[in-house]
Design a protein around this nucleic acid. Structure first.
Lengths: 329, 329
DNA sequence: GATGAAAATGTAAACGATTTCATTTCACAA
DNA sequence: TTGTGAAATGAAATCGTTTACATTTTCATC
């Protein structure tokens, strides 16, 4: 593989001139430029990012931290990030932490070692202390999940309001006994979603029943099934379930059907996220749509601006309730 | 941020010695080692991959080329690749090509520019000519989808046999009118799966009916719905459908139910891949399990060996038919 | 205490680009 | 022809490592 020296030699110019042609800045005579381009062509030369990156002290790589690749919620976000990043000549390193500190550490090390220029964190279980520390030296953006008040810019939606609207929808179609399938309240979004749930109930003079609130360890299908099993065993069975993720809701769906009950006639179900699969189930899932692609592009743009040393502000994006068969039959 | 020079100076040794401590080879006195480690600690030093990579002419990054991130089929494979790569100190760059040559080119350029040490290609629509050309200079492995006879090692399953067994299962539970929902036969795996389908039929003296074979452009849910619509309109309606991907099958499931028919009583359905979601549908999907995680680890190991200059052989892994509700009720 | 081999450490040259600053070339006017 | 300033080009430093080779240190032996 040829390097810039050989190109320079073959073109009869200095490496500086080759570099100038390569990068298009500074003025180079048309004739010289041609000579260089011919040499590049002839030698099949491709500039090495290794040399360039060292010189420029950058890697042009950004890290995406997700808890698991198994939740399709991250698909569209990743697509958004990728496209925005690509347009700015960045590549993305996808990092699945499994919410394990040791895997997280491996990836944090990558930015410490200059292998990555910044991080978009989507892991709610991320070690906030380490993140804060890193944020002093490196560009970091929180996406979707975030710790507030730690000085790291984020892009997210209004979880409380979204939750409120979802529950209100259930109330409006006649439900009073509404269960909440929430995730661990150590996460901010979980607390916010419970608050939205309670606000909707209170607003319609429905007492909040602690027995109707369930917590799951993760946001997956199995957790949804397990929680739903418990809900179905309740003395005074709820007629509706609001789950804070589509995967939970799909698990609930499956369990309800398995119990010989009908959705939505016996139990109505609302999910959260609007992942692709929410439309593929029987019945299709009513859910809160998050603007995932947008979230991704915004997060990527914010990160790149941060990398360039600009200051960036947090962003709250809109959401939308998508009403489908699991609540209206 | 400190560099190796400053560490050396602070420890009162040469950079070579620091490097030796860093990399653990060569012998360094315990006393010297301690001094260096103290300096590292004191200065909060982290070795820069940029410098190291340039010097070693490697990036320790591998590219994963997938057509789309939306098909969960790739989840487990990616996990497998990631874990194996991580254990060898490689990171993975996830590249979604959307089966578009221009996006593919962007990523190919990354390896030409030394930003990546090798490629694991899972895109059936990849430009085989370019791939062949690249393979002359760079490490490349094909995973799951592959072009045979182009001299690039691959890891895959025996599609013909897997398909044969799936169809045989349908025949054994009494079906004779079996539709095949295949993808475009420009892909090798599609041709192989049709051959397996036909072999099973012939073996049981069931004539192959061209009207029962459908081709889809992509392997998604919508394509499955559309194909199923056509199948349901057939004069002599099949009693079973074998789809070459779970997403297609899930689309079929949805469409059958929407038509007021019952799975499997009216129409039985078999999918392919055993993605997580194949278990979340109503009814759960009978499907051919591909050893995806294994495939990922094997592909990653092969690639790393290739990068190290070893010659590697292609691998064919086993598969398994998972019988669930969509065929047995 | 001199000798020598082995062990530890240091020096300096890579790796492949970009960029600052110095130098050459050039066109044009006097 | 010569002088001038601007434009084009080149020389060399730099980014942060690793490593071949050279040098120094150590220590057992006589």
């Amino acid at each position: 593989m040829a390097n810039i020296q050989q190109v320079a030699k073959h073109a009869g110019v200095s490496v500086a001139t080759v570099s100038r042609v390569l990068n298009g800045h500074d003025k180079v005579t048309a004739k010289t430029k041609l000579k260089v381009e011919e040499a590049i062509q002839y030698l099949n030369y491709e500039p090495s990012m290794l040399g360039r990156n060292l010189r420029n002290s950058e890697s042009r790589i950004v890290l995406i931290l997700i808890p698991t690749i198994s939740n399709p919620f991250y698909f569209e976000i990743i697509k958004g990030i990728e496209n925005m990043a690509l347009s700015q000549n960045y590549s993305i390193l996808l990092c699945e932490t499994d919410s394990k500190p040791e895997k997280e550490e491996i990836y944090f090390d990558l930015v410490r070692k200059k292998m990555a220029d910044g991080i978009i964190s989507m892991d709610p279980a991320v070690n906030v202390e380490t993140l804060k520390e890193l944020a002093e030296h490196y560009a970091i953006i929180q996406c979707s999940e975030y710790g507030g008040g730690i000085g790291i810019p984020y892009v997210t939606i209004d979880s409380e309001e979204a939750s409120y609207r979802a529950v209100k929808h259930l109330i409006q179609i006649g439900h009073k006994k509404i269960a909440l399938m929430n995730s661990d309240e150590k996460f901010l979004y979980a607390r916010e979603r419970r608050m939205g749930y309670e606000r909707a109930l209170r607003e319609h003079d429905i007492p909040v029943n602690g027995d109707y609130i369930f917590y799951t360890h993760e946001l997956g299908f199995e957790q949804g099934q397990m929680a739903m099993k418990k809900i179905l065993r309740l003395e005074d069975r709820p007629t509706a379930v609001f789950a804070v993720s589509d995967l939970l809701a799909i698990g609930a769906l499956k369990e309800i059907t398995a119990a010989g009950l009908h959705v939505p006639n016996d139990v109505a179900v609302v999910g959260f996220d609007k992942i692709d699969f929410s439309n593929m189930t029987n019945p299709a899932l009513t859910t809160v749509a998050q603007p995932m692609y947008k979230m991704g592009t915004v997060a990527a743009r914010m990160l790149i601006e941060k990398i360039q040393g600009k200051t960036v502000d947090s962003v709250v994006l809109g959401h939308e309730l998508v009403i489908r068969e699991s609540t209206t039959g």
